[in-house]
């Protein structure tokens, strides 16, 4: 039997995948804690940013550097628009959690299928060549992966800064902590939610662009990021905004380390088995805080 390969490439890839998942997990956690919805509709935001980048580069002909800010704006706007047009009504009415879950999944599915119908189910690329990259720890990490890692760390710091140091950010924290109290001291909850969605939309768009630079744009690209993000939140918990990021990193490592010595077909079983084990042994998440879920069945 050949000796097991070096663990380093798997560590590197695992960390990279983890940080990639962490962005969507962060966005989802932001909304979950503040607004109280598990928002699968972030998949629609992801798709919006992805297709916007495609359109701006291939359709309009902008260079990538110019297209990226445009896509970020479009993604953020989509998130806020979805909040105003769809979720706000349900939130105001105090809709129970299962209704909002159904609504957000429906938003995601509808977007996916509408794109499939209106544009095409084909995959398109806006970067056709090999992405430049560096070799580290025995494996090659390309700029998209490095960008994702950088963006997640920046996003984490940025979200923290925004929430702790700016006015609108403070309202987000206040509402996340205790909505009634925040309302009581005059915080405009609707506007706080708007900011939350904007922030989450920005983070998801920042995740989508390097992802699709690497693997192309088609209507189905958002499925994995969204569900892996949920798994990351389950693993990490919601205690602080750091927790889902840590959970995401652990999940990414689980995906890759699982394959280090076992055949690749075990990848999903091991990774999801990990999720299951956390759920059974420590349901509030490894780092705590999942009990902040509001449950009104």
């Amino acid at each position: 039997m050949t000796p097991p390969p070096s663990i380093l490439p798997f560590l590197a890839n695992g960390l990279s995948l983890g940080l990639s998942i962490s962005l969507v997990a962060l966005a989802m956690a932001l909304i979950w804690r503040t607004v109280g919805i598990i928002d699968f509709g972030l998949g629609a935001v992801y798709l919006a940013a992805a297709y916007a980048t495609l359109f701006l580069t291939k359709g309009v002909g902008l260079p990538l550097a110019a297209a990226i800010p445009g896509a970020l704006i479009i993604g953020t706007a989509t998130a806020i628009l979805l909040y105003w047009a769809v979720y706000r009504g349900f939130i105001r009415r105090g809709s129970p959690l299962f209704v909002t879950v159904l609504v957000s999944i429906s938003v995601f599915m509808a977007t996916q299928n509408l794109i499939s119908a209106a544009i095409s189910p084909q995959k398109f690329y806006f970067i056709d060549t090999i992405l430049p990259g560096i070799t580290v720890l025995g494996t090659r990490l390309n700029v998209a992966q490095l960008a994702k890692m950088g963006v997640s760390l920046t996003a984490l710091a940025g979200v923290a800064f925004f929430c702790l140091r700016t006015g609108p950010g403070a309202t987000i924290l206040a509402v996340a902590d205790n909505k009634r109290l925040a309302q009581g001291v005059g915080v405009n909850v609707d506007r706080a939610y708007g900011w939350t969605y904007g922030l989450a939309g920005l983070v998801v768009s920042a995740a989508a662009i390097p992802d699709v630079a690497e693997s192309g744009v088609d209507p189905f690209v958002a499925i994995n990021p969204v569900f892996l993000a949920l798994a990351a939140i389950i693993i990490g918990g919601l205690g602080s905004f750091r927790n889902p990021v840590l959970g995401a990193v652990l999940l990414g490592l689980a995906f890759h380390l699982a394959v280090w010595v076992l055949p690749a077909s075990w990848q999903e079983v091991i990774a999801y088995g990990f999720v299951l084990a956390v759920l059974v042994a420590r349901p509030q998440g490894l780092f705590g805080g999942l009990n902040i879920v509001r449950e009104r069945a």
Partner: peptide
Amino acid sequence: RYFMIVTFSMQLI
């Protein structure tokens, strides 16, 4: 409280 999360995860897994 975790019932929803556990059942949802079971569904995915």
